[in-house]
Write a protein that binds this DNA or RNA. Structure first.
Lengths: 252, 252
DNA sequence: CGATGTATTGACATTGATCAATTGGGGTGG
DNA sequence: CCACCCCAATTGATCAATGTCAATACATCG
């Protein structure tokens, strides 16, 4: 339950990466910013390294900054009164976190690193001010938020898909796509989350996830080895899932 | 499948309501704007009346404007390849629609009026420009989008709630809250959507929704008459649903 | 090499979907 | 104004999909 905030080992290595050097530049906030605008943005930006299992923020925390995942992976979830938990999403490099906290100035979900993860923090107050001065930044912020809506909707569609196989197939598809967006091989997926997490995310029992992934492997649709997954037959996968989630493309 | 765009009976009655006269002012975009800023906003704003069943925009349409529901109710949904449909959300007065279209400049869901509905359209290009000039407006836009995330998350939590009763109970709770936010009696709910819609929204069979609502009535938790619903015992309702969705409050 | 936690696999129970029939409003036209 | 029709909603009976419980396999790490 530690929050990584407390650790002040931030610029320890001295290499405080600016957006200019960052490989995610095109996916992230800086897209279409000019050089001097980039510097302005970089000037308000903070870094942290989060270890697996650590929390980036907790439900109830005062909202202070938006976060960008630079590397690694993050899950966000809420917990109910009865202690039940619901995973809201997985977040990969280039994606932003924390929008939900903005409205009430308080986070209403918890964000946890699924593996060693680098984070950029954008203090919201400053970001807002800078955005007013740089229209391109404002525009890009809106776009990124919009993208989040699309992702949320895909999650919803997955949960709504009635037969469990469809949900699992859709899940694999989305993971594939999101890897593709990062410029990686779409067919190779390293699951950063546990089967329990996947089950929770899709609202299925862990055992069901296991079984259905095994089934997909038996049918030659995927190769599966622990958390390493390879798509062998994308067409079948799409056929099984009943959808082609071509929804998500990045802006021009 | 008509889109209401074509109908140009907009300011027909001559009473083009500005934000200043609108009862939703505090819930909506104008919150915390000054008078002259309000006028600026009102100047770019268009109105339409949508009849029940008509579409406000369709999946695939070019994204042109954000919409605010002024009165009535709207549902948004996506359809899959197999013709399956998933309702993404219900939208009530004061809420904004269309953010999902911003990222790719194309709507990826369809919005349909559940009853006679009034809409304000905010041409996005202009809105963006105005927002740059009015920091308070930009801020408010971000907040409204953030609120949407919270609502989406509540939907997710509902779908994830395992026993069907919980989902239904949660649904009633959220409807109650959203009525409350509009300043109406929290215990009186007029469902604007069909049982089929509710079922789809919660990922339950229509029959299950019917049965469980009937059960809640038998147990004295609610009164139910067709689409008119009254909460008799909120505590039990919360108890049954296992959550207290106190998540959503409006900004100060 | 044993310990611990994650994943898989099997057997069984149960929830909620499906199929089918009935009820009941609300609107329409005679 | 009434009779009819149509669609939405309800209710009942049955069954399959998936959750649950339990045992085992497998990896990783100390």
């Amino acid at each position: 339950m530690l929050t990584a905030w407390s650790e002040q080992q931030l610029d320890f290595e001295g290499l405080r990466l600016t957006c200019r050097q960052c490989s995610l530049q095109e996916l992230c906030l800086p897209a279409s910013l000019r050089d001097h605008e980039l510097s302005l943005l970089a000037s308000i930006l903070g870094h942290s390294n989060i270890q697996q299992g650590q929390h980036i923020f907790n439900a109830g925390d005062r909202f202070q900054s938006l976060c960008v995942v630079r590397s690694g992976a993050v899950k966000t979830w809420v917990t109910g009164l009865n202690g039940s938990m619901q995973i809201l999403g997985f977040h990969f490099p280039g994606e932003m976190l924390g929008f939900e906290g903005l409205a009430e100035r308080r986070h209403h979900c918890t964000a946890e690193a699924l593996s060693g993860t680098e984070i950029c923090r954008l203090p919201y107050g400053q970001l807002e001010r800078v955005a007013t001065r740089i229209p391109a930044l404002q525009k890009q912020l809106f776009r990124i938020m919009s993208r989040e809506f699309v992702l949320d909707n895909e999650h919803l569609v997955m949960m709504g898909s009635r037969p469990a196989v469809e949900r699992v197939a859709l899940f694999v598809q989305t993971m594939s796509q999101r890897r593709g967006l990062l410029g990686h091989d779409r067919t190779i997926i390293d699951l950063s989350m546990s089967r329990v997490d996947i089950g929770n995310y899709l609202s299925l029992a862990t055992e069901t996830v296991s079984r259905l992934l095994a089934e997909l492997e038996r049918e030659g649709v995927i190769d599966l080895d622990r958390r390493h997954l390879r798509i062998r037959d994308l067409d079948r996968l799409i056929e099984i899932s009943g959808e082609d989630l071509g929804l998500l493309h990045y802006p021009d």
